[in-house]
Design a protein around this nucleic acid. Structure first.
Lengths: 158, 158
DNA sequence: AAGGAAATTGAAATTCATTTTCAATTAGAC
DNA sequence: GTCTAATTGAAAATGAATTTCAATTTCCTT
């Protein structure tokens, strides 16, 4: 099992690469590269967490007062379309985004007390999911798995 | 693996039992038994699917024009609290409810074309989930697992 | 480099499910 | 039956997500 206790913030190399990918995506689709999109993408990739549009907007507002919420929202959608971000909705019903690297599928452990989100990957589970789908004649395209409970810290000082 | 291709509608025995359980829950909590709650619970248990408040309301409106949406909504919340119903949100972001029997935990296969929802249970996956949680020092309370893809029908006549 | 068509921006308005409010009604304890 | 607290349902409020639209910017064409 691949462990990543806390979503890792990308080194600047990865970020540059990803911004390049975004540019390609935009050009390909006939969209335009703008100062705003560039700044929003940078900030998003640097945060490297499961952020909401709102959170990202607040962060960006600190540095750039002229970038609106709507543009942050739309840029996150764009990042999602381009495959650079994944859109996720957990039990609190807010839409969160996380940077996505090529082959890194993972699921989440969510603490019901402190709200921390921990990522994990388990190939054994993935295989079984595939098998279940097969048994129903179902072609699985994607899945969503979240374990809710209490993290090490929160279960201890309860 | 337990298979239930389509959520089964309860026999009337089960429904009576559940309505009894609801009554007990209400009394216990100092809430009142009302004609509306009774009718809404009956209709809900008979439908036995993953209904939204809206759908249930529309169904009930056909028979009883004096029951309001708000009451249906609140009764579903109540059923959820009492453990008789489970609240679920899938990718379409609507809150759905399904009758819940004591020990019947299950997950869902959701067709991205026709929207059909199929239930399944797989103990091997459950065990692995427990193990993953353990490895993170996490105490799992509940989980959510959904496989999205195309059902037998939809993948065939594509 | 200038022109111009098309995309983008951001504030404000809209949507839509969900949740709350409140006055009138009802359940059920005494 | 009386009384008090809970319930009801229409309407209003909420709040995140999405759309609108006029002003601005990008970038393709010349």
């Amino acid at each position: 099992m691949k462990i990543s206790g806390r979503p890792t913030t990308e080194g600047s190399r990865g970020i540059k690469q990803k911004k390049e990918k975004l540019k390609n995506f935009l050009k390909e689709k006939g969209f335009k590269s703008t100062r705003q999109r560039d700044l929003i993408a940078s900030e998003f990739l640097e945060m490297g967490e499961h952020v909401t549009a709102e959170e990202l907007y607040r962060e960006i507002s600190k540095k750039y007062t002229d970038i609106g919420y709507t543009t942050v929202y739309r840029t996150l959608k764009l990042l999602n379309q381009s495959g650079l971000a994944a859109e996720r909705v957990f039990a609190d019903n807010l839409t969160r985004y996380e940077p996505l690297s090529a082959e890194d599928h993972h699921d989440h452990l969510i603490c019901m007390k402190c709200g921390s989100i921990t990522e994990f990957q388990d190939l054994r589970i993935e295989r079984l999911q595939e098998r279940v789908a097969d048994e129903f004649g179902f072609v699985a395209v994607s899945h969503k798995m979240e374990l809710y409970g209490y993290c090490r810290k929160c279960k201890d000082n309860a």
